[in-house]
Computed example of a mutant assay.
Amino acid sequence: MRIALVITSLGVAGAERLVVDLADRFASLGHAVLLVHLTGTAEVVPRHPDVTVLGMGMNRSPLSLLIALRSVRRSLKAFRPDLVNSHLVHASLFARLLRLTLPMPRLVSSAHNMNEGGGRMRMWAYRLTDWLVDISTNVSDEAVAAFVAQGAVKPGRMVTMHNGIDVAKFHFLPKARVQERRALGCTDRKLLLAVGRLHALKDYPNLIRAFAQVKGQVPGVVLAIAGEGPLRAELEALVRSLGLVDDVRFLGVRHDVPELMSACDVFVLSSESEGFGLVVAEAMACGRVVVATDCGGVREVVGDAGLLVPPRDPEQLAAAILHALALRPAVTAVMAQQARQRIERLYSLDTAAKKWLALYQSPSLPSA
């Protein structure tokens, strides 16, 4: 099968890492894969040598859009895909425009959140162009329901396709635990970890305020935050105002996430909104105790293998973190095993790739 994947960018984020992992897995199964990213430089790239990656360098200008449409059209005509799968809102709208001038055997449009980071106009654009796709997907049942409720798609025109975790990559690494904890200066201290862009939807102020409460009862605890984004200065100011400068580590973009996850004692997700919660699944695959806000598809991921609290409630988040830190080692070991087994059973990359290929090859996709 010849598969073309089109995504807005290849930055260090959950959707981008998933698409790169899927591209690798499809290629390893013998499929021809073309991966097109519209903007920026590729920060995450496929490892399989047979995946062709094309960057368009597109910006916000109408001329840049026209040039990119022409270039991708030419590339797809040469590649002759059996299916095009677009990911994230800008790439999905781009692929729909492209289909007006380029015949595509099949076009699948994939969202990765409750509203793809936009408001009514973005949902209206989805609905207006829905007739141009064969089927849309989203990463959780709750995200699908949100798109239907917002009028972006009609019922039955969007299906759930859960994210997949490369369990061969994300697993507990004992040596890395020792090394990373030494590097972070917390060899004999409890370590909390959060991973994700420093963006409003991740609600890091919620985490930092909860951590201030935890710090009052567990003096030696450290919080590490891996990720970069527009709110870094604001978050650093909040840390200073709460007197936590010596206890919070902003790590920036990291490419050793499995190692960091192995190092932590508790992984924390503080988001106010998530589509799936990919980092939660990755932490579970690494055998970590997870404390997460109950938003989007996170409940579907965690099940009974972690602790869930309401979003935007630092008091309850702090209480859950304190509970997790106080667990006896034997209980922690059982939770770690249950978490790993849940991801292997339900959300492994192999499972996800098989489901995607079954969707791609389905004799009859739902129609408008």
Rank of each mutant, 00 (worst) to 15 (best):
Y347H: 15
I321M: 11
F276A: 03
V289I: 15
P230R: 14
S273Y: 04
A233G: 05
A339H: 10
S270L: 11
Q338C: 09
Y347C: 01
D294I: 08
L242P: 13
G296I: 06
E274T: 11
V291T: 07
V331P: 00
P314L: 02
L307I: 13
E236Y: 02
T332E: 11
A320H: 11
M261L: 15
E282R: 07
Q338F: 00
E315S: 14
F267A: 00
E344K: 06
G227V: 14
E259S: 15
V298L: 13
M261Y: 04
A320S: 12
E315L: 13
V334E: 15
V268R: 00
G296R: 02
E272T: 14
V290A: 03
F250C: 13
A285D: 09
F276Y: 15
R288M: 13
M284K: 05
R328Q: 14
R232C: 02
E234W: 02
A320F: 08
R249H: 10
G303Y: 11
V334R: 14
I343P: 10
R299L: 07
L251K: 06
A333H: 10
A292F: 10
L325Q: 01
L231V: 10
A263K: 09
V257S: 01
P329C: 04
S348E: 02
M261E: 13
V279L: 07
A320V: 10
S271K: 07
P230D: 11
V291N: 10
G306I: 06
P329G: 05
M261G: 01
D247Y: 11
L242G: 08
R345W: 12
P310S: 05
S270M: 11
